[in-house]
Design a protein around this nucleic acid. Structure first.
Length: 501
RNA sequence: GGGCCGUUAGCUCAGCGGUAGAGCAGUUGACUCUUAAUCAAUUGGUCGAAGGUUCAAUCCCUUCACGGCCCA
């Protein structure tokens, strides 16, 4: 048997390249695209699940061609076993000098490394221990893996390496691929739900003159031909509402948004958000529709509505709890009515509860929200809608009819995290203009997150926008829930990292 | 931005002032039924980078880079 590698030939990459050269030297084709698989590992495993060894010997199966990566190799002189992984599963394959030929066996043994893409052809059998095995008669090297693979037992555990080389992470740690398959199915289920409820999926600009629709710092870019500074969108809201003005009654967008902010286990600079707008609906109706959608998506994906997440079991079957923010502070944070009376009593009570108060002290509404975020939010494990938000933090929402200073907004909390927002949308152009003015005042005072004044949006509102309810739902966070992942980076294929020097 | 932790062989990790270690992967040999195969031998290191302290630094100190967790 020829041995292409020699003991002094120690560089792992060079060894693999040497084996590839040897494969070509013995007549193999370089990166062929002439062999197509006729089956997958999953199909064969299912088809022959009940066939015993004798049956497979007595009535030989057709010859199948599988394609995939070699992920394990075990050699016994003139027989070898390998694991072939093809994206839908893994199947054992075997080569022996009897089934193929001494030449084919030697070619495989001398030239194939862990990680190589191969196409293998042969018939199904079972080993003495009963494992279903494709007995290879011939094979083709489809693509060489030029790098040594991570530890076969521990896999790739270095978090940084996993994010930087997701392609490697995915085939070394198959559960990672499963996360992204689940994410994809989740998005399909959401589309199906909305499409069947009369919504139209639309695409609105990512390049925007003014980044509106949320309070966040945008990324800046530039269009050369127009010599025009532009921003990447932070939210699609203002364009989707323009479509209501245009006459589309139900629209949604799965929107990649960009926010020039910090990175954490909950934030990635680019992230995906679902927004939908529904004419003639109010906050209550969009909340009810979201509840129905989440119940259906969770059930569709895992067969029932109870979702394990970290140490919790989250129940989507029960009606979601509804509390006003005020009620939640009284019930869950231990505030009294007197504490909530004025900004001073609230600040004093908050200080006692170890809420870190910013200086200078913010408005009553902002302080109220800060207390909520610090004291209540972590307790909201089961799906809970929190109703009514201070007007200062919600410049696009309809005012509450009988609570001055508050707006008809709700947020959905699950597992202690905010997952979505629900609005009775503001369609009064006069009120909207005043809200933009207030934001402009904030911006002039140095608030870099204040929403820009959008005159064209006001023009659209002045033409008349039907009353509407709208929602925003964090798709990445929902994916974290559905795949039981602790960090947003675990549900984003290629999270942003600093370049490695 | 702040605090804590990490960075040692391709991978997973020990070592923590005195010549750099293991398992897996790789290489060589044995082996026709393995399942993290086994047995024997063996290659492989700028110990993240740069300074400093020391007779001597992977180890102690400083700065920097990248990452993780927590906080903002």
């Amino acid at each position: 048997m020829q041995t292409p590698a020699t003991p002094e030939f120690s560089d792992l990459i060079a060894q693999r390249q040497h084996k590839f050269a040897e494969y070509l030297k013995r007549g193999g084709e370089r990166y062929p695209n002439t062999v197509a698989p006729t089956a997958t590992t999953a199909e064969l495993a299912e088809r022959y699940a009940n066939s015993d060894k004798e049956t497979l010997i007595g009535t030989p199966t057709p010859s199948y061609t599988l394609a995939g990566r070699i992920m394990a190799l075990r050699l016994f002189g003139k027989l070898l076993f390998a694991q072939l992984q093809d994206g839908v599963g893994r199947l054992q394959i075997s080569l022996s000098v009897d089934v193929s030929s001494p030449e084919v066996f030697a070619l495989f043994n001398d030239c194939i490394d862990l990680g190589d893409w191969v196409a293998v052809s042969g018939r199904m059998g079972r080993t003495n221990k009963g494992e279903l095995t494709l007995q290879v008669e011939s094979f083709t090297l489809l693509a060489k893996c030029h790098h040594p693979l991570p530890d076969k037992w521990h896999g790739l555990e270095d978090v940084e390496a996993r994010y930087r080389q997701r392609y490697l992470d995915m085939f070394i740690n198959p559960e990672v691929s499963q996360v992204f398959i689940t994410r994809s199915k989740m998005i399909s289920a959401i589309r199906r739900f909305l499409d069947s409820n009369g919504f139209l999926e639309v695409e609105t600009p990512i390049l925007q003159l003014q980044a509106g629709g949320a309070t966040a710092r945008p990324f800046h870019t530039h269009h050369n031909a127009l010599d025009l500074p532009l921003n990447l969108r932070i939210a699609p809201e203002l364009f989707l509402k323009r479509l209501l003005v245009g006459g589309l009654p139900r629209v949604y967008e799965l929107s990649r948004n960009f926010r020039n902010e910090g990175i954490s286990t909950k934030h990635n600079p680019e992230f995906t958000m679902l927004e939908w707008y529904m004419a003639y609906a109010d906050r209550e109706q969009v909340m009810a529709l979201m509840e129905a959608m989440l119940r259906q998506v969770v059930t569709e994906l895992q067969g029932h509505a109870q979702l394990p997440y970290a140490e919790h079991l989250i129940d989507f079957a029960k009606p979601f709890t509804r509390l006003t923010m005020r009620e939640s502070l009284l019930a869950l944070a231990g505030f009294s009515e007197a504490d909530l009376a004025t900004i001073d009593t609230l600040a004093a009570a908050a200080k006692l509860k170890k809420v870190e108060l910013p200086k200078p002290l913010p408005s009553y509404g902002e302080l109220f929200q800060l207390c909520f975020e610090t004291l209540v939010e972590p307790q909201l494990i089961q799906p809970t809608f929190i109703l009514d938000y201070p007007i200062e933090t919600s410049p696009l929402v309809r005012q509450h009819p009988n609570r001055p200073g508050w707006v008809q907004r709700a947020e959905l909390y699950i597992a202690g995290r905010e997952h979505g927002e629900f609005y009775s949308e503001l369609n009064d152009p006069t009120d909207q203009r005043a809200r933009f003015e207030a934001q402009r005042t904030k911006a002039q005072a140095g608030d870099k997150e204040a929403m820009p004044f959008d005159e064209d949006f006001l023009h659209a509102l002045e033409l008349g926008m039907p009353p509407a309810g709208g929602i925003g739902l964090g798709i990445d966070r929902l994916a974290m829930l559905l795949t039981n992942q602790p960090s947003i980076r675990d549900v984003i294929l290629f999270p942003l990292l600093r370049p490695k020097s």
